[in-house]
Computed example of a mutant assay.
Amino acid sequence: METKPTEISSSKMFGGFNKRYKHYSPILGCNMTFHIYFPPASSTSNKVPVVYFLSGLSCTDENFIIKSGAQRAASIEGVALIVPDTSPRGLNVEGEADNWDFGIGAGFYLNATEEKWKNWRMYDYVVKELPKLLSENFRELDTSRASISGHSMGGHGALTIYLKNLEKYKSVSAFAPIANPMNCPWGQKAFTNYLGTNKADWEEYDATSLVAKYHDVSATILIDQGEDDKFLHDQLHPHKFEEACRGAGVPLLLRLQPGYDHSYFFIATFIDDHIKHHAQALRLL
């Protein structure tokens, strides 16, 4: 099993390169792919900081790289984009591909505790394995300077990972995050299957619950939410997260964007703001 990353594609863009890699993940027990956008600055002697982007339900590591247009701002700001996949693949667990909102493409960035789904450990993959892999194999990257972002399920992942690891990430942002998964159908389905029925276990992966516990946040949390997002009222609940932040004294900028939906058209419209948000925080070191 080759744990070192192997390059499988490369495309030049805005003076830098989108590169896709595969490797065997001991944590997940399968082969995984991820993308890195190396900005032009990475070809100099200086290491560049990194921004992780976690994608949403049914996505792979390709969606954000192909559709977001984030590379333009990343090129200008001199930050690398790290885009992992959203779940283990190829394990052939019964039922893993029965639904688009659970199993393959739906890892929810947690560590499953139910035996059947024991390989679904995307939290450890994103927080531990992938940063170590990057630091050991890519001299261009300064993984000690890192920020994190995400969309929908990935926005949930970015918020929860950030709050529980404030020493690892300098800033966080999200597009239309599943902000209170304990209280929405997507989250309840995933948490029941991955974590069991103990709600106390669910709270460890719910940003609205975590904010009161991990409230020593200095950098403002940035969230963009489309007002015409069909999932806004049933699945996303940004206002519950906003209330929790207010109660905990956590700085939050929640921007409601009229007319925008849940798609990558929405992400592409505001991604430059998010890249600049992270670049500013990373430069403050």
Rank of each mutant, 00 (worst) to 15 (best):
T197Q: 15
D201R: 11
Y205P: 05
A207C: 02
A207I: 01
A207N: 01
T208V: 02
T208F: 01
S209F: 00
S209W: 02
L210I: 05
V211T: 07
K213F: 09
D216F: 00
V217P: 10
T220L: 03
I221S: 14
I221G: 13
L222V: 08
D224M: 05
D224P: 04
Q225A: 07
Q225L: 04
Q225G: 10
E227K: 02
D228S: 15
D229M: 03
K230C: 09
F231I: 05
F231E: 08
L232F: 04
L232E: 06
Q235V: 10
Q235K: 05
K240M: 11
K240N: 13
A244R: 07
C245I: 04
C245G: 10
R246S: 12
A248L: 00
G249A: 01
V250Y: 07
P251R: 06
L252W: 11
L253R: 15
L254G: 14
L256P: 09
Q257L: 07
Q257T: 13
P258N: 07
P258G: 10
P258Y: 04
P258K: 04
G259I: 01
H262G: 12
H262F: 13
S263V: 05
S263N: 10
Y264L: 01
F265S: 15
F265C: 11
F266W: 03
I267C: 13
A268M: 02
A268R: 03
T269W: 03
T269G: 10
